[in-house]
Write a protein that binds this DNA or RNA. Structure first.
Lengths: 225, 225
DNA sequence: ATTAAGATTTAGACTAATCTAAACTTTGGT
DNA sequence: ACCAAAGTTTAGATTAGTCTAAATCTTAAT
């Protein structure tokens, strides 16, 4: 009994957060390493090891000690449910309650764990069963599929070419307000005017104005066309 | 150090639930007894004692051992904040998302602990700063005051007298659906046609129909006029 | 005035989730 | 091929909240 290899603990909000983060870091199938998971979760690596062990016993992840962790089918299903909640809530807060896109992440971060399936359904229906959230992040469907989106970033657009912004992969409120202030939001048409060498800034024209964006920032902005 | 009389723990959802329940059971100032609190919270009396001790150390309640517990000003402030959240959320779910009044309690029970002040404000504004929830329960104001409501129940209305329903103090979904089915909802005009002796049923006419209500149920239905 | 029933508290254990410190494994550079 | 640095796991402690079982207090009935 003291050996304590018994119990299937419940899917708590913390468990959901680990699964969601493993999914988002590993696109569900790559191995995710302990330290990077610890950084994203704001816990120490030893805490991750402990939790990963528990998740493995629950059959939600597979853990190859010293090499990393990845989700099982069950783990992925839960992760996608949580992500669906998160993105539906973000969109709902913007559409129904007048939040701005930089305000919704924190709120959704807690609400995602506590809304019932019934509330999820009402929100989805109220929004007309949307496919993307305010940042352009795709919303997983009820059946657990996640529509693929663009993978080309602003930094990959050839100079003197236009593209339409479809997604901004950033959840930092400050940066979201900054790019929104420049007109860089999903749906906007922009033209890349210059890409500086040595990982330098990417210049884009939005309407009549030209703005220089840090390369790493430009890489979080996904486009199509 | 082992004597462990140190730490101010945080105001967790569980702490909020205890404060809310103490408020609702004691109208804030009466002593609330351990066993009744334990029953309402669905925990054992010893758990209540432990928590009450912690709440007292946090300055949120005063505890007279063996005699009961009541809220301090700080405890009452938190309790009213949580109740405000609860009732705003219940009303919002009904008004904005098409829930029925029997569905909203469970949902509000968890959401009340996690919405931000900003979301609370948006919800209140969206509803036009309402004063009562779908059950007629008054919504505490931002300043921590709680409007007084009717105290006369259907069982106190003289026979052959009309009254307007203002509040149904019940959170059981089954019973709520039942009385709503009879037309007994806040705002409805009813006439008490008979009150049976020996704590017997109260008969009321709603529209053209007459229904007999159990005395205890009638006592949860508050009226004015 | 006593006592038994009922209510309350204490004592000690358990779980989920975290931490620090120490031990172990992998890997990349010479 | 070795070995130090980086990454990972183990060991053991801590906190919030709960439980069971035992001890203690209050009260109401005789």
């Amino acid at each position: 009994m003291t050996t304590a290899e018994n119990l299937a603990q419940a899917v708590t909000p913390v468990v959901e957060d680990y699964l969601k983060t493993i999914y988002l870091m590993g696109r569900a199938h790559e191995q995710v390493k302990t330290v990077s998971l610890a950084e994203r979760m704001n816990v120490k690596p030893s805490s991750v090891t402990a939790m990963v062990k528990a998740l493995a016993e629950m059959g939600l992840v597979e853990h190859e000690p010293y090499y990393g962790v990845h989700l099982t089918a069950n783990g992925e299903r839960i992760a996608l449910e949580v992500i669906r909640h998160h993105r539906l809530i973000e969109l709902y807060l913007v559409e129904a309650l007048g939040f701005t896109w930089d305000e919704v992440h924190e709120e959704a971060e807690v609400l995602e764990h506590v809304i019932s399936e019934k509330l999820e359904a009402r929100i989805a229906a109220h929004l007309g069963h949307p496919t993307v959230d305010p940042h352009g992040d795709p919303i997983p469907k009820l059946d657990g599929t996640l529509p693929r989106t663009a993978t080309r970033s602003l930094a990959d657009v050839p100079e003197r070419t236009s593209a339409r912004i479809v997604r901004v992969c950033d959840q930092d409120a400050e940066r979201l307000r900054y790019v929104a202030g420049l007109g860089v939001v999903p749906g906007a048409e922009v033209t890349v005017t210059a890409i500086a060498p040595f990982e330098g800034p990417v210049s884009v024209r939005v309407g009549k104005k030209i703005h220089a964006l840090d390369r790493r920032l430009a890489q979080t902005i996904l486009v199509e066309d």
